[in-house]
């Protein structure tokens, strides 16, 4: 990408946009910078994510969307060279605080990855794994209940109810991704992070997932990275546009796609780069 976009010298104030007062802020990001070794991947990110909404992160590839997403459940911790600074709060709780247990955090902030990655175990065990390690069920019946509800919420139960013992890797791509969503739901998270969850799926499976995301909004806060602007427009209420590590613009999805403020956003959504 050798576009001649001038890199902003000043951090962009994406916060010209204010969430409506009545919305509860679920995830609050303040001045987050991320470095991979010498290279800075994110610059002073400020973003508020409202509870029970879907927020899309869009932007050209390599702009730091995944990096930002991984900050929210501290998956960057496992990358040796990654360094995160700034403040991220979940319900007012600093998730980078020393006293925070990442294991608990990741149960509360679930993640769905780009490529469906079910464990090579049975469908049941895939969903039951999280509740098991976190001790969320006291007995077998409770565990089964969690598994069934999670599969139902992920819209997969009817398709797999007769073969819960079969391997999760034997499902179709779309089913696998919904299994991964069920697995994430099973730990009763508050926030679900999705990193291009439909990019490896065919259009029909994608449509199913999109519908599902809309339903999941009732119970969860969803932050989704997508490379498809149509998808962002279809499923999210708010959209954040990243560019070269900067959060350029945040706003109502409709506003971002119809009336973007920043020229770079405009260029991107009209397909002039990325």
């Amino acid at each position: 990408m050798n576009m001649n976009v001038e890199t902003p010298k000043e951090p962009v104030d994406a916060m010209t946009f204010q969430l409506p007062e009545e919305l509860q802020v679920k995830v609050k990001t303040r001045d987050v910078n991320v470095h991979y070794g010498e290279k800075q991947a994110l610059f002073d990110i400020n973003l508020d994510v409202p509870a029970n909404h879907v927020v899309s992160l869009i932007g050209p590839s390599g702009c730091g969307k995944s990096t930002y997403l991984r900050c929210l459940n501290r998956m960057n911790d496992i990358i040796d060279i990654a360094r995160v600074s700034g403040k991220i709060e979940l319900d007012g709780l600093d998730i980078y605080d020393k006293n925070i247990d990442v294991v608990e955090l990741r149960a509360r902030v679930g993640m769905v990855f780009q490529k469906p990655n079910p464990f090579p175990k049975s469908i049941f065990d895939n969903v039951a794994y999280g509740p098991r390690i976190h001790g969320l069920a006291d007995n077998k019946t409770e565990l089964e209940e969690i598994v069934v509800t999670s599969l139902q919420k992920a819209g997969l139960f009817d398709e797999v109810k007769d073969r819960l013992k079969d391997s999760g890797t034997g499902l179709s791509g779309g089913q696998q991704q919904r299994l991964c969503i069920a697995r994430a739901i099973a730990t009763r998270p508050e926030v679900i992070l999705m990193d291009e969850p439909a990019s490896a799926l065919d259009p029909i499976a994608t449509a199913v997932i999109e519908e599902l995301i809309d339903e999941l909004r009732q119970n969860f806060t969803i932050i989704i990275v997508t490379h498809s602007m149509q998808q962002a427009a279809r499923i999210s209420q708010y959209t954040a546009f990243f560019h070269l590590g900067y959060l350029v613009e945040v706003g109502d999805t409709e506003q971002i796609f119809t009336n973007p403020v920043d020229r770079r956003t405009q260029d991107y959504i009209t397909g002039r780069f990325g």
Binding site: N73, M75, I78, V102, V103, E104, L105, R106, A107, G110, M111, V112, F113, K115, N117, P118, F119, P120, Y129, G130, I133, H134, C180, R183, A184, A186, T187
Partner: peptide, 10 residues
């Protein structure tokens, strides 16, 4: 991806 999946559920 398997490690990520496991880490992802905590």
């Amino acid at each position: 991806s398997i490690r990520e999946a496991a880490l992802g559920v905590g």
